[in-house]
């Protein structure tokens, strides 16, 4: 009896674990199947065409791709220095009394749903952008800034964790030679934790590019490519969030699936680079 139960337990758990792989494969397959109509009809033009006009059966994904790239790029430019500054502060600078409370608040802020960041962006940040740079406030620039604020806690927390892996004794050795805090950070901690820090930043990039709710509120879903950051724009997730339930025609529907597939492939690639190239496996980063 025991032996049978033992086998059942072992096989059930293995079956479920393997199902995760099958599920991921299934997700890719389904997205690909539903994209086929658009892939065959539009071919490579899908990613180079700049016009997205469902009523004219025109589906060019370039504005959405452009928007994803630019908004994420903006977010990274703003968030990376801030996150590194916060990480340095938390790991090397903060007085003992502030270290834990500030560190824990950063981790908790990383848990706040992104839809809340989006609401904040819409009601409080859009008016500021409107007053400062003109336009309607709903813009690529706003999206980039809100996105940067949204990923800041995650980025700072994981960067701090990477910096904290530097053994104390190594830091003390550098202080013992007369190093200042900054000497120790730039000569010991950063070289020691380099892979971890870069990996963390890329992981944050992978999350930012797939982020939907923080930007949907403030981007405008306008399919245009413009150098002017104060104009409304769109990104792949923003397009999906706004248009998925409206898609009626076969090609419209299929092109949205192709956008999903594209987004999944892009984030899979970025996250894999972070994971396999920079981060050795450690405990889950929750």
């Amino acid at each position: 009896m025991s032996i049978i139960l033992d086998k059942i337990f072992a096989h059930t758990s293995k079956f479920i674990a393997v199902s995760i792989l099958l599920l991921v494969a299934w997700i890719f397959t389904v997205l690909l199947q539903h994209s086929m109509e658009s892939i065959t009809a539009l071919g490579f033009d899908f990613v180079t065409e700049t016009k997205w006009a469902p009523n004219l059966e025109k589906f060019g994904a370039l504005p959405a791709i452009y928007g994803s790239v630019v908004s994420t790029f903006l977010a990274m430019i703003l968030a990376v220095p801030l996150a590194i500054g916060v990480a340095i502060y938390l790991s090397e600078l903060a007085p003992a009394k502030l270290k834990t409370p500030v560190g824990v608040s950063i981790e908790l802020l990383a848990a706040i749903p992104s839809v809340v960041y989006g609401m904040w962006g819409l009601f409080y940040f859009v008016p500021i952008v409107r007053d400062l740079v003109g336009g309607i406030g709903i813009s690529m620039l706003t999206a980039g800034i809100v996105l940067s604020i949204m990923i800041l806690p995650f980025m700072a927390a994981v960067t701090r964790d990477a910096m904290d892996t530097t053994p104390d004794i190594l830091k003390e050795s550098a202080y013992a030679l007369g190093g200042t805090r900054w000497d120790v950070i730039k000569d010991i901690i950063i070289p020691y934790a380099k892979a971890g820090i870069i990996g963390s930043l890329i992981l944050a990039l992978g999350r930012a590019i797939g982020e939907t709710m923080a930007v949907t509120f403030v981007m405008g879903n306008v399919h245009q490519i413009s150098m002017d950051l104060t104009l409304p724009a769109t990104s792949i997730p923003v397009t999906l969030a706004n248009e998925f339930t409206e898609a009626s025609s076969g090609l419209y529907y299929s092109s949205l699936f192709q956008l999903s597939l594209l987004l999944l492939v892009i984030s899979f690639t970025i996250i894999s680079i972070a994971k396999f190239y920079f981060l050795r496996r450690k405990r889950v980063g929750l």
Partner: peptide, 9 residues
């Protein structure tokens, strides 16, 4: 870390 909107799709 994968985009959750894709799971929705």
């Amino acid at each position: 870390s994968a985009p959750s909107i894709v799971i929705g799709a």
